[in-house]
Amino acid sequence: MTAESTAFWSGGERGELMIAFCDDCARAVHPPQLVCPGCLSRSVTPRAVAGTGTVYTYTVNHQPWLPDMQVPFAIAVVDVDGAPGVRVTAPVDCADPATVRIGQRVTIAFEPAGDVWLPLWRPLNGEAA
Rank of each mutant, 00 (worst) to 15 (best):
T6V: 04
E16C: 08
P84F: 11
Y58W: 03
M18I: 02
A7R: 05
G114K: 00
I19P: 09
V35N: 02
A90M: 01
P31R: 08
P123R: 08
T59S: 14
M1Q: 02
L17I: 05
W9R: 05
P97C: 15
A83E: 03
S43F: 07
I102K: 06
R122G: 10
L124M: 12
D96G: 08
T59W: 03
C94I: 03
P64L: 05
R14K: 13
V106E: 09
M1T: 13
V80D: 00
D81Q: 04
G11I: 04
D115C: 12
Q104E: 14
D115E: 15
A128H: 09
V92E: 05
E16M: 06
C36P: 12
W117D: 00
C36E: 13
Y56K: 01
A7S: 11
D24F: 03
I108H: 01
F73P: 10
Q33W: 00
V71G: 09
D24E: 08
L34M: 11
L120E: 09
E127I: 07
Y56I: 02
D96Q: 09
L66M: 07
F8C: 12
R105F: 01
T6I: 08
V35T: 15
Q104S: 09
D115M: 13
Q104P: 05
V78D: 06
Y58V: 02
W117T: 01
D79P: 13
A83H: 03
A20L: 00
A129C: 15
S10H: 04
R105E: 11
N125L: 14
G15N: 03
T52Y: 02
A109Y: 00
T59R: 08
A98E: 13
R42M: 04
T45E: 11
W117N: 07
A129L: 14
S5I: 03
A48K: 06
L17Y: 02
Q104Y: 14
V35I: 14
G51Y: 04
A128W: 03
S43D: 12
T59V: 12
E127K: 06
M18F: 01
L118A: 14
G11W: 02
T89C: 08
P32T: 01
A90D: 02
T89K: 00
T99G: 01
V44F: 08
A129K: 01
G51K: 00
V29T: 06
A20D: 12
V71I: 13
T89V: 14
V78Y: 07
C25W: 06
P46A: 05
V77H: 08
P31F: 11
A48H: 13
A28P: 10
C25Q: 14
S43N: 13
A98N: 10
Y58L: 02
W65T: 11
W121D: 00
L34A: 13
Y56V: 04
V100S: 05
A76M: 06
M69F: 10
L34H: 10
L118D: 10
P119C: 04
R14M: 01
G126Y: 14
V49K: 02
R14D: 11
F8M: 09
G53Q: 12
